[in-house]
Design a protein around this nucleic acid. Structure first.
Length: 578
RNA sequence: UGGGGCGUCGACUAGUGGUAAGUCACAUGCCUUUGGAGCAUGGCACCCAGGUUCGAAUCCUGGCGCCCCAGCCA
């Protein structure tokens, strides 16, 4: 048995992980440390909004911000960006923390919330009003949009832009006191309505929202916008390198403006390209839609590209860490192929996970010349990649199950497995030869009659003869029943967002993303396998015990398949035939 | 359309004036008591055009292409 370790491997420095890879952000930090900028201090932060679950894209940001801090002896804060009470919930806070821990992120006691700074943010807003740099605007949302102008046309100044400091102060105080309804007024920064950067056309700093906040309750009815809050929150925390994704690049001048007006510590924002993965959607909004509309069973559905989904599927933090190290960091907009992530999952699982025999679609086999009442305990290697993993005993008896796919009555070319008259090895057991095929009334194969060679115990051939194939098996009387959930990509298209007229991304959902296989048979040794335990089912793939398991029946998620050379050959044969 | 970014094998990423490298994927072979894993080998990659230079992916000029921005979301 083996369970996912909870070691921090999504951050560099663990024994097996590759040395930190150079990239442009790391280069900047190296330079800053060398030039003693910020006193040589490195402080980053990871600022999720608690309005959804962490997904694969976040793992890249987490790996970066936490990893860089660790590498340079600095700190990385966790700060929830909770400036919008309408969309945020404590459920998400707890889930995000759990996922972060699992990934190995370490923020020690530095768990913060943007809402921790609401008082300071408000005081700074007052300060900006007093300096004539902010004003209360009575325009409606629609009017604000009209006044903003377009890409090619400059905006127009709000008619309320010229209000006196006193009037602004009084109005802002009344906004805060709850004198006005939602949306009736805003506090705006007085910058430049003609700026080619739309973010600088008098952006909103505060909006009226009579909504209960998950942390501050009903203390406030005005809430700062992200654009107003973010830079100052970073500043308050002494962040030196504020790492974020590319779409915030043209917000940076705005953050800089607030910091300069206020004359406070100025973190350096550095933008990188967010993760894109083939066959995957990494948008919280769309992920939420999949959950709400029941396209998946929840945020932790093993098909979801969420961290909790991956955990349930059997992915490991180490796999994410190695993946993130390998994909690197840049500003080029790219799409990483899903098989690269899967490669790191397999690589990690291959070396840590014990092998076991399981039959997904059982075919009954009777060994005619094996004694009816005999049961042998045969030795099986737990993990050929790890000598310390030892061996286990597997019961063998007269009646067995093998994989239906491992028998062909009429074997095609290059099919080396069992067929009438052919001898194969039962892994760790004996060489057996198929003597007869039993069918039911409708012609379906229901049983194979085989004979075994007693000289080949353990699968050895004292006479040196070779067999083309070794197949897995399970003793019928001793094996346990289990359910297996086989997954394929959630979307059928490489780019799920590529849709036809009037369709949305759900049109690209893969109808075959989940296949439930009931009545599988597994080795008796798995009887008390705990939830989350990972195994390799020999020749089939990696599987993980699902929380839906009961004492009566284990449920397994297929984490990843093994390379299937025969399937490839068969595909080619079929392609050539048609 | 104004602004901000970005163009290197199929994918991701190195390279920072001097032999274009690595990983995945793909292909072929070896090995194998998992058709697993492993090992070995392989392939018209520098967006285009000029320029500077003995020498350019790298520097300059001009094109072309792609991404992001007109939420009181983040």
């Amino acid at each position: 048995m083996s369970t996912p370790r909870e070691t921090p491997a999504s951050t560099p420095g663990t024994p097996d992980s590759p040395p930190p890879k150079s990239h442009f952000i790391r280069d900047i930090i190296v330079q800053d440390v060398q030039s003693n900028k910020n006193g040589g201090r490195v402080q980053t932060r990871f600022p999720p909004e608690p309005n959804g679950y962490l997904h694969f894209g976040h793992s890249k940001a987490i790996h970066l911000s936490f990893g860089l801090a660790q590498e340079f002896g600095g700190k990385c804060n966790l700060r929830f960006d909770d400036t919008n009470p309408c969309k945020e919930e404590t459920e998400y806070v707890a889930a995000i923390i759990e996922d972060l821990r699992w990934l190995g992120a370490d923020w020690a006691d530095r768990l913060f919330y943007a809402s921790d700074y609401f008082d300071q943010l408000h005081a700074w807003a007052v300060q900006l009003i007093e300096a004539g740099k902010a004003y209360v605007c009575d325009l409606t949302a629609e009017q604000v949009r009209e006044y903003r102008g377009t890409f090619s046309q400059p905006g127009r100044e709000s008619p309320f832009r010229g209000r006196s400091v006193e009037e602004n102060l009084a109005l802002f105080a009344r906004m805060r006191a709850g004198d006005f309804p939602d949306g009736s007024r805003t506090l705006r920064a007085k910058i430049d309505m003609a700026s080619p950067n739309l973010n600088l056309r008098d952006p909103i700093m505060y909006r009226i929202l009579h909504a209960e906040h998950h942390r501050t309750g009903n203390k406030w009815c005005i809430y700062p916008t992200y654009d107003y809050a973010h830079g100052q929150c970073d500043s308050l925390e002494g962040v030196t390198h504020s790492i974020c994704t590319l779409e915030f690049e043209d917000h940076r001048p705005l953050y800089d403006w607030f910091l300069e007006q206020l004359g406070i510590h100025h973190p350096q924002q550095i933008e990188f390209d967010r993760l894109n993965l083939t066959y995957t959607i990494l948008s919280k909004r769309k992920l939420l839609q999949l959950v709400r509309d029941g396209h998946v069973r929840g945020w932790d559905d093993p098909r979801m590209p969420t961290i909790c989904g991956a955990r349930r599927r059997g992915y490991t933090p180490e796999a994410f860490g190695n993946f993130c190290s390998r994909i690197g960091v840049s500003k080029t907009t790219g799409v990483v192929e899903l098989p690269l992530l899967e490669h790191y999952v397999r690589e990690d699982l291959n070396r840590r996970v014990n092998r076991v025999m399981a039959v997904l679609r059982p075919l009954r086999v009777v060994i005619e010349n094996y004694p009816d009442d005999l049961v042998e305990e045969l030795d099986a290697v737990n993990n050929p990649e790890d000598v310390n993993a030892g061996t286990r005993k597997v019961p063998f008896s007269r009646v067995l199950y093998i994989e239906r796919e491992d028998f062909r009555e009429d074997p095609p070319k290059k099919f080396y497995r069992l067929s009438p008259g052919r001898e194969v090895r039962l892994r760790y057991a004996y060489l057996v030869t198929c003597r007869d095929v039993i069918k039911d009334a409708s012609g379906d194969i229901v049983e194979l009659r085989c004979t075994y060679d007693p000289e080949t115990r353990g699968g050895n051939t004292p006479d040196g003869r070779k067999v083309k194939s070794t197949i897995h098996w399970v003793s019928a009387a001793h094996s346990l029943e289990a359910e297996a959930r086989l997954y394929d990509t959630l979307f059928a298209k490489e780019d799920p967002n590529e849709v036809g007229e009037g369709e949305d991304f759900t049109a690209n959902l893969n109808p075959n993303s989940l296949e439930v296989v009931e009545r599988c048979r597994i080795e008796p040794g798995l009887r008390s396998a705990p939830v989350g335990a990972l195994y390799q089912f020999e020749r089939l793939g990696y599987f993980c015990v699902d929380p839906d398991s009961t004492p009566e029946k284990l449920v397994f998620n297929r984490t990843a398949t093994l390379r299937d050379t025969w399937a490839k050959i068969e595909r080619k044969q079929k392609g050539a035939a048609s």
